[in-house]
Structures are given as structure tokens and as C-alpha cells.
Design a protein around this nucleic acid. Sequence first.
DNA 1: ACCTGAACACCGTTCAAGT
DNA 2: ACCTGAACACCGTTCAAGT
Lengths: 208, 208
Amino acid sequence: MRGPVVADTADTTYHHGNLRAALLERAAAVLAESGPDGLSLRALARDLGVSHAAPSRHFRDRRALLDALAADGFTELNRRLSEAAGAPGDTESRLTGAARAYVRFAVERPALLGLMFAAKTEQDPTSCLRELGHESLRLAAALVEQGQREGLVRPGDPHRLAQVAFSTVHGLATLALGSLLDDTPLDEALDLAVDVLLHGLRAPAASV
Amino acid sequence: MRGPVVADTADTTYHHGNLRAALLERAAAVLAESGPDGLSLRALARDLGVSHAAPSRHFRDRRALLDALAADGFTELNRRLSEAAGAPGDTESRLTGAARAYVRFAVERPALLGLMFAAKTEQDPTSCLRELGHESLRLAAALVEQGQREGLVRPGDPHRLAQVAFSTVHGLATLALGSLLDDTPLDEALDLAVDVLLHGLRAPAASV
DNA sequence: ACCTGAACACCGTTCAAGT
DNA sequence: ACCTGAACACCGTTCAAGT
């Protein structure tokens, strides 16, 4: 060893131990630029200079790889959300910041967000993925609870109110990714959504 | 011809003219029970007793088939939405009814809804799909406009307010499909979402 | 026009065998 | 433990040829 060589160029020395990490890294790049359908285990193995059967040691399935990518996506999203939720400022600006962080994530990694929520549809077991998704909702619920203490949000189960808030922001991200927002600047659409949402959360339940 | 035989059993007489329709019908069934990844052109052809190259006459691509399915999905969704939007009752109950119709569609055809919004991410041209998605938003905008005339909804561009309303309902459907609503009954979550939404839409913009 | 059959280049998955 | 190489059963897509 001649020094603290952490990661020179991606020469040829994967193989021992970091194949799993290398697969995930390369897979994330391919997903971002070719979508999930462009992601092939064999091509991945080829890119990494490894036999086409090698990935199966680290991921039983193609699905397992996809799920791992989605899990990493939720982890990163939750990191950003909790950072935004812990930022200085009042609860209203924190909630706005979290919404912005969510939409930013969606715009930066559209295919990944799609995978995160598409994967769940075909899931059943005690999935690690579902747990990570719940963590997102828990972060939102914590913000809602803060808002309730300040009288900014109506009384009621913070988890249920958080489901509504999450729906609005996630739905808007979906519209944006689907080019369904047209000429509306995403920032403006988001500001309006947050405004409507905050007013709706404040008002006491009664109308319906 | 011995009588008004509309659709006997699906015997063997596709072939002439209705192969396209037969492919779409079978594809919709496979999509519903196996997801998009379980949909293979060759298997479809096999199911219909036709050569594996035959589908290419009617759908240039696998994508073209998927897009056609998504388009049919939007058409059906829009049919249901406009029916709900034209139902008797006041604007508030019509808006609630449209939201319910949306979520019902999502629950009945989860894979199709996923396809409808996933397909758009990878789209670019003057897609017929995007136009059908816009129609959904236009239906929502019409309802918002009705609400404005009755003083139920704040002033402002109805299309932009409709984007917010659509986001909330679509987002909630996504959460439900992803098993992220947990033990919350979907009906209750939807009622709460509509309540928050209506209060938010009514309140004049000011807070942000 | 509409479909067939063969061909091509790719897949995911499995499994004995190597080191 | 970790990886290889061959094998199997499937793909999507194309294209000459049939009727």
C-alpha cells in the first residue's frame, strides 16, 4: 500500500467486497438516464467487468436490485426531509421547506421517485421499503404536530393530517414529472399548493 | 348469420380486423393481474393463437401497446370524472364525487393508473397521452370554476387551483396503492383530504 | 392488407465447477 | 466466500415469404 488511495479511477479492481456497492452505484446512474426498463443485470455486469452471474451473489433478483435502489432513494429523501424539518425558522417555513425539498428531489431523480412508489404496488411482505416510506410520513406528522402546538394546524390525528399534506406535495411532483403542469412554473404551483394546504390544515373541520 | 351474436366465446376467430382490439383487451387483463413487467408481446400472441410477429402490425413497439393501454385508461378515467362532475347536487358534492370517482378508479385498476403516469415520464413528442391527461385537469378546472361562481372557491386561475386539487387526490391514491395509508380507511383519508382541500381552496390567498 | 417462420441479438436465472 | 462458463427458456424486433 502506497498511501490512502480511497477511490482512484474505476479501474478494474471491484470484485472483493465492493461489488454490491459498485452494482448499486452503476445501477443508479443507468436508472437515471435510461429508466428502469433500461436496467439489465447482464449489462451492469458487463460495465463492471464481471461475469453475468456475479450479481446474483448480491441480489437474488432483478427486483431485489430495484428494491435496493428504491430503498436508497427513500433513505436519501428522508435525509433531506428531516434536514428541512429541522431547519431554523417557524413551523410554517419549515413545512414549506420540506415541501420544496420533496419536489426538488423529485425533479432531480424522476425515475428513482417513480421506482420508489411503483415498487410498492407489487410488494407484499414485511418490506423494508414500506417502512422507509412510513418514515417519510412520520416526518411529516412531526411537522404537523409542531403546527398544532402553535395553533397553525387544526386539532386531530397528526398522522392523518400528514397523509393529506404528503398527498398534496407528492401529487404535485407527479404532475410535474408527467409534464402535466404545462406552462405553470413548478415553483408557483408549489407555492399555491402549500398556501391552499396550510389554509386547509388551519381551518377547523366542519364543512363536510 | 343466425342472429345478433355479439361476442360468443373467445373461440378462435380473431385474425381479421379485430386483432388490435383483442390484443388490447387481453393486455389489459394481463396488466391487471401481472403488472407491466408481466406483459409480453409474444405471450399475448400465444394467448390469441396468432404468430408472435402479428402484433407488430398493430403496435410498432411494446411501448406503443403500453401507451395505448394508458390512453384507454385516461379515456375511461375522464369518462368517470365527467360523469361525477355532471351529477346532480351542489358544486361541493360534485367535487367530492369526482374525488371519490378518482380514488375508486385507482383502487380498481392500480397497475393501469401506475402505467398512465409512469408512461408520461418517458414521453416527449406531441403525445396523445399528455392530451388525455390534460383533459382530466380541465375537468377539475371546470369544477373549480363552478365553485368560484358560488363563492365556494377563492378567486384565481381555475387551472392552477385545479392542479392543486388534482395533486391532492392523485397523491392520496398513490399513498393508498403503496400501502402507505396503513390502518387508515381510505374513505376516511379521502374525506379528510377533501375537507382540507375545500377549506384551503375557499380561503383567500394571503398566508404565504 | 395481414399474417407466418426463421433469424438475430439480447435477456433473467440456475448450477456445476473452479480458486 | 466469491466468481466463472455453459445452459435453459424466454424475450423484442426485423424481414423475407406466403395467402
